[in-house]
Amino acid sequence: MAEGQNRRMHVQDVSDDENIYNSSSSDTDNYNDQSENEQESIEDLLHNANLVQELSIEQSGKDVIFDIDSHNGWQREDHEPSVMPFEGRQGLRCDLPDQATPMDFFYLLFDEGMWDILVTETNKYAQRRIENENLKPYSRLNDWRDVTVDEMKVFFALM
């Protein structure tokens, strides 16, 4: 077999024990041929694995030396990182009711400014697509109308 070529191994699928006991001599011959091919394939795989292992060993002995980038603070020696003490206030920095609901937390992320951005950018995107593409006559974009904040909230609620 030429180097670099792959050989596919075939496994005989046996559904009953009867197929093993009632096989004819031609089945046995085919099985022996298959066994020899499988043995050759296994030997080829082992040989290729040994070559890869030898290459790995050769490569591991070759260290690549890079220039030190002292301008950006890179060095060859390892140092313990300096741990800066945290002096800020921990926890949420916002006003929430004492009995906050999941929606209160949701509205911390999706405030009115965020809804405005989502609606504005959605409408800009649709307008750019309408202007820059050759739309087919029955394209939904031909009937586009700007999305409102309430419609965007309904869309998010359905997701």
Score class of each variant (00 low, 15 high):
Arg89Pro: 07
Asn32Tyr: 13
Ser23Gly: 09
Thr122Ser: 08
Asp13Gln: 15
Asn6Met: 15
Val14Ala: 07
His47Arg: 15
Pro97Ser: 03
Ile130Asn: 02
Ser26Asn: 14
Gln12Ile: 14
Ser139Arg: 01
Met152Asn: 02
Glu151Met: 05
Ser35Glu: 13
Asp150Asn: 04
Ile68Gly: 01
Ser41Gln: 11
Asp67Thr: 11
Ala126Gly: 01
Leu92Pro: 01
Pro81Glu: 06
Gln34Gly: 05
Gln34His: 07
Asp67Ser: 15
Ile117Pro: 01
Leu46Trp: 08
Gly73Trp: 01
His10Ala: 12
Thr28Gln: 14
Asn22Gly: 08
Thr101Phe: 06
Asp29Met: 15
Ala100His: 02
Glu58Cys: 10
Arg145Lys: 14
Arg129Val: 04
Leu158Ser: 10
Leu118Cys: 05
Ser60Gln: 10
Ser60His: 09
Leu92Asn: 04
Asp116Cys: 12
Arg8Gln: 11
Leu51Pro: 05
Met1Asn: 13
Glu77Ala: 07
Met152Phe: 01
Pro85His: 06
Tyr125Asp: 00
Ser41His: 07
Asp17Met: 15
Ser26Cys: 06
Arg89Met: 11
Asp98Gln: 11
Arg129Tyr: 04
Ala157Asp: 06
Gln39Met: 15
Asn123Arg: 01
Trp144Ser: 00
Ile68Met: 08
Asp95Ser: 12
Glu58Thr: 10
Asn132Leu: 13
Gly113Thr: 09
His47Ala: 13
Leu118Tyr: 03
Pro102Leu: 00
Asp67Ala: 13
Pro97Phe: 03
Ala100Asp: 05
Asp150Cys: 05
Thr28Arg: 15
Lys153Glu: 03
Val154His: 06
Gln34Met: 07
Asp95Glu: 13
Ala49Pro: 02
Ile20Lys: 00
Ile130Tyr: 01
Asp67His: 08
Gln34Arg: 10
Tyr125Ile: 05
Glu38Gly: 07
Met103Lys: 14
Met103His: 13
Asp104Thr: 00
Asn50Glu: 12
Met9Val: 14
Pro97Cys: 03
Arg76Asn: 12
His10Gln: 14
Ser23Leu: 09
Phe105His: 05
Pro81His: 03
Val147Met: 00
Asp95Asn: 14
Leu108Ser: 07
Leu118His: 00
Thr120Lys: 13
Ser60Thr: 07
Gly88Met: 03
Tyr21Ala: 12
Asp67Trp: 10
Ser26Gln: 14
Glu18Ser: 15
Leu108Glu: 02
Gly113Ile: 04
Leu55Gly: 11
Lys153Cys: 03
Val149His: 00
Glu87Ile: 14
Ser24Gly: 08
Thr101Gly: 04
Arg76Met: 09
Tyr125Val: 01
Ala157Pro: 01
Ala100Phe: 07
Gln75Ile: 04
Ser25Tyr: 13
Trp144Asp: 00
Arg7Met: 13
Leu45Glu: 12
Arg93Asn: 14
Asn30Trp: 08
Pro97Tyr: 04
Glu131Ser: 06
His71Ala: 15
Gly73Pro: 03
Phe110Trp: 02
Ser41Lys: 11
Ala2Gly: 11
Met84Glu: 11
Gln90Val: 14
Lys124His: 02
